[in-house]
Amino acid sequence: MHRSLLCVRILAAGSALQAFAFSGHAQSSPDPKYDFYVCASMTKDFTIGKRTTRLSGLFRIEDRTTPRHIGFNHPKQDAVAVDPSDPKVIFTAGLNGVLRSLDGGESWRIMTSWDMTEPKDIVIDPNAPDHIIVGLPDGIGVSRDRGVSWDRMDSGIPRKYTQSIVVDRTEAGRMVAGTEKGIYLSEDGAKHWTLVQPADATVTNVSQSPHDPGVYMATTQENGVLMSTDGARSWHQLDGLTSAHTIHNGDFDTTDPDRLAVCGWTIGVQVSEDGGKTWTARNDGLPTANVWRVAIDPDISGRLYCSPHQEAVYVSDDFGLTWRHGFFEGAVVWDFAFIARP
């Protein structure tokens, strides 16, 4: 899921978008328009039931440098979603279920009950911000009242493990799910799902282009990187990327439609500057080529973040040519999210 999409749409409606004149070079914005959220586990010393000595869970990084922990010290938060119309409304998906804060992270409530465990992804429908969709190990859950009540809506998906969810920001009722056995598309608000691309194992992440809403990218465990240019109806595998190891996620560069980045196990960070036709490894300076997550900063052109296995988050200001130590130590990042400031 590309987590800046909701916010891009809002910015596009106003004059704020013009405030950014991205040149294609690393350039810090004097006044970032996005808040930066990270879901991270300090995994080096974590075992269920063991004393935790460091803070894990959700962090907000307003200055792109100093993470501020939000909420409970929770060892596994997989994903975060923030209401584009009210940034104080934050949802996370993690081991204890779906958590919601209505006050910017000061207080929280577990919105799911015992029968929904370990949601893997969570999105807010940009077409209806009260609608929350979660990918679950056993299907898809939908709430139409900001998480107060939930329905299971995964008809048509026989193997229900769902790792990733994207809601089409341009067409209400369309959503795409990355599951154990492939990519499913719903065009009726999750009532029915249709397999549009089989996969040999888990589809790890799906994201929608911020430039062309008909373009989607999916990363997979065994089928490399898949791309769709017709609104997720058909998919093709991109050349030049391995299928031998898991690719964890991919991201579009909001400032440049030709720029993409993906990351995974043994491949580190790979970037494309021609819309996915060719790929280049950008791992010089990274401590390992096992990378959990990559993101492209929508505020700072050329800025990449990545999470090498049990290391710090590394930062690049030249689209991966060089990397520097950013923040955290011994961490695994499950989600980077950029949320537009109103």
């Binding site: 893997k120 888990t202 964890h248 959990w292």
Partner: peptide
């Protein structure tokens, strides 16, 4: 992957570590 909801590549090493 059959019994846990994590990503695959690190899992065997992770359970050893844990």
């Amino acid at each position: 992957q059959m019994y846990f909801t994590e990503m695959p590549d690190w899992m065997p090493d992770a359970v050893v570590f844990q």
